[in-house]
Nucleic acid binder design. Structure first.
Lengths: 231, 231
DNA sequence: ACAATTGGTGTTAGCCTGACACCAACAACC
DNA sequence: GGTTGTTGGTGTCAGGCTAACACCAATTGT
């Protein structure tokens, strides 16, 4: 009797890639990092950074590696987004792409990795034509980002370590694409108990009154509990 | 000058699998379908149904195929959950598993596929030891199911085509693990406009007053808009 | 017919949301 | 140094929504 079971032939094994949509706030605009492809297919086209997963590496490790190659940062917010695996999404053969979303502070600078001729920030609202199905991935990432922002506290991840409430509000407004009431915004975030007041102020950078700096309480629960449809 | 770019060697290609967590409501209990593995590794252990993705097949097609092999149904709710890819999660080598969640009506019966000696429903609250990292996958699926139920209308997917409001409420209560107020529950769902009243009643199946049967309005928007943290 | 069981319906108090205006602290300019 | 402009920071209130709550209706079984 047969006790073993055949694995698929090598020809059926796909390639495994991770692609990372890296968001940041620059010049009061929501931007994401794109690289220009140095090799075919889609040579010369803009794409989101990514690459193949190494043998002994977890998916998240691979995503962090790609992220670090392009930006130099590693201790930032990173979350798995979705896995794209249409059979013909890559002309070289079957390539499965596990997409991640990263949020990096505004002071991070881009740098080109090995596979990319250039790496540059692009406004999320005015993107060039992208390679592969990357437009779809970006679309999905944007949706997820807005959605998360509405009911969690990830907004901080887009700002420097210390920030003013106005900067935080501007970040929310930029991502959500709508204006928020100042007093209500402040009340909510302060009552949520996820901010820590510092003794310092942001001085001399604008011409108005200096604003108090706040810090994200890393010890607080990461996800603000969403309000529920049923009690 | 080099204009091509090497692909990873075949040895680095992983195997690609889909695994499907199939939920259903049976005997007023949230249950999920498990199969007993017929081949090593983990021969004899319970596992969630799954298998390798064929070359020309999309991920969702593969998930629907596995689903149909085990249950015979195909037109049901199916959603990608998460991709698990730890390097050593499968002793046979690198296997990437794209996990899906399926919700099937209560009247579906299990049937063993080719790779499984048995297929049976198990209470989600009392599961046996599972193969691979499947316990983790199930945990994650349960979390997602509860979460979605709180702010969307997927509850119907667990019920037959026509159902009473009491049955729907019982479904919500079973999954969420808490009791809901009857009047508030009815009011919300009726006001949401996603239910369609039928002319029929469920008669003779219980000893009380017959209950009106409702139907899910497939033409309505699938996702009830979640309430938002910021207006 | 009587008991038991399930189906179906409205009101209200309290909370939360969203809308709204003014004074404070600093910089730039005169 | 005073005046103007700019940004920071604070409290209230009305209205809507949520959650809590009890009784009559229609059927089955005895």
């Amino acid at each position: 009797m047969d006790t073993s079971h055949p694995l698929p032939p090598d020809a059926e094994r796909p390639l495994l890639a991770v692609d990372v949509v890296i968001f940041s706030l620059r010049q009061r605009d929501l931007q994401l990092l794109l690289v220009r492809r140095r090799y075919p297919p889609f040579k010369g086209r803009w794409a989101i950074p990514g690459g193949f997963v190494h043998v002994a590496e977890s998916l998240e490790q691979a995503a962090r590696r790609e992220l670090e190659e392009e930006t130099g940062v590693h201790a930032v917010y990173l979350e798995q987004l979705y896995t794209f695996g249409e059979p013909r999404r890559d002309p070289r053969g079957r390539v499965i792409s596990v997409a991640y979303v990263a949020l990096v502070p505004a002071d991070v600078t881009a740098r080109a990795g090995d596979d990319a001729a250039q790496a540059d920030w692009h406004s999320a609202h005015a993107l060039p034509a992208l390679a592969f199905d990357h437009a779809e991935i970006v679309q999905y990432a944007l949706q997820r980002l807005r959605y998360k922002l509405e009911y969690t506290a990830v907004g901080f991840e887009l700002l420097p370590h210390e920030f003013t409430l106005s900067e935080l509000q501007a970040a929310y407004e930029t991502v959500l694409g709508e204006r928020l009431d100042k007093r209500n915004f402040r009340r909510r975030l302060l009552e949520a108990g996820i901010l820590e007041e510092t003794e310092r102020y942001r001085e001399g950078e604008s011409q108005g009154r200096p604003a108090r700096l706040y810090r994200y309480r890393r010890d607080a629960v990461t996800e603000v509990k969403a309000r529920r449809l049923f009690p």
